[in-house]
Design a protein around this nucleic acid. Sequence first.
DNA 1: AAATGTTTTAATCATATGTTTAATTTATTT
DNA 2: AAATAAATTAAACATATGATTAAAACATTT
Lengths: 204, 204
Amino acid sequence: MTKKSKRETDTSTEEKIKEAARKVFLQKGYSATRTRDIAEEAGINLALLNYYFRSKEKLFYEVMQEKMQQFFGELLSIVNDDSTKLETKIELIVSNYITVLSENPELPLFVLSEMKGHAEKIKKILPVQKISNNISFIRQLKERRPDINPIHFLMNILGMTVFPFIARPAFNHIAATNKNELDSILKEREKLIPLWVKAMLKAK
Amino acid sequence: MTKKSKRETDTSTEEKIKEAARKVFLQKGYSATRTRDIAEEAGINLALLNYYFRSKEKLFYEVMQEKMQQFFGELLSIVNDDSTKLETKIELIVSNYITVLSENPELPLFVLSEMKGHAEKIKKILPVQKISNNISFIRQLKERRPDINPIHFLMNILGMTVFPFIARPAFNHIAATNKNELDSILKEREKLIPLWVKAMLKAK
DNA sequence: AAATGTTTTAATCATATGTTTAATTTATTT
DNA sequence: AAATAAATTAAACATATGATTAAAACATTT
């Protein structure tokens, strides 16, 4: 067995804390999370949280940065890629989100809620270069539909794809669906949404 | 001037507290809201909050119930109405949400976040009868597209309509849009979304 | 093995926060 | 006007919570 210093055993204390923080922050949000919740979830002494991360806030921003990257990162790569055509981009955006959010259903509500709550500080840690007017995806949409602001189509794709995860509790209540039923419906959307978006692009 | 008892002056203390609670809870969410924030916003002594509403929690559930009604109530009336045809229902849903959310942009993120955080207690105060399979809107969708689970179309309409309000901070960052620009884009969607949904209903 | 450095712990601190109390002011009834 | 009831206030309470401290346990270097 390879030698390891104590701090890199199994999973390091630091990583245990961060993993616990991911879980608790995503489940409860920043304000409802107690540092004691995180310590308990991580199975460590409360003081270690401050020893490794200085403060609840600093730990939060590490998690937040990571989660914003997870939520926006791949999207931005896709829309920026000059080498894929519009139809392919649409398919990639949808299938990426359905995959990521199926594994991480709390991600969008967490990211969007906390972006609202910490608006100022968030600007500094945005992993997100602005989508300029010159970006591949926007140019392609303008070319296809010069009569419609391309941001509409971005809203449509993200709305159709991401919203069902955000509103999952509501769909569970409102519509008579159980967890498995809803999961399979969400999977179906991976194929359906690109078809619908293409239909929208043609609609006059 | 008509005589009024003290508690019904101008706006009553109780109503001032509730109005302040609406504002602060919607802005910050349940956990980040301090009862002192509400008292200050209402311009009343802190103890009056408990005098009129017993606890932060009770006050919160009054606001929450009201906001769930505001968010789901009209939708449910529309989808339940046998006397409107499918196309009209779609237009009504979209225009209702765009109107309500333009006045109350924090509503959907608040309702959906807090529904997640208080899942159990929420069930009891849901103003929301389940949308059964037998409801007008669902029957109409099944008739039009027997090959697609009608819930998909509900997700699409709500996703396209509501998501931009939820993700507004993100759209402000990601896309180079300012507040007014985004407002006018959102207004445009009132006409566009019904067209797109109709195109989706036809898409094969 | 001693010395030094690092990690962990239990206890404590300082402040924040929801709520209550007891007294005071204001309004209503007799 | 006196008596009673309702509304309001300042102060305090009890607990929760983020953070710190000082000592102990453990690991590494000399």
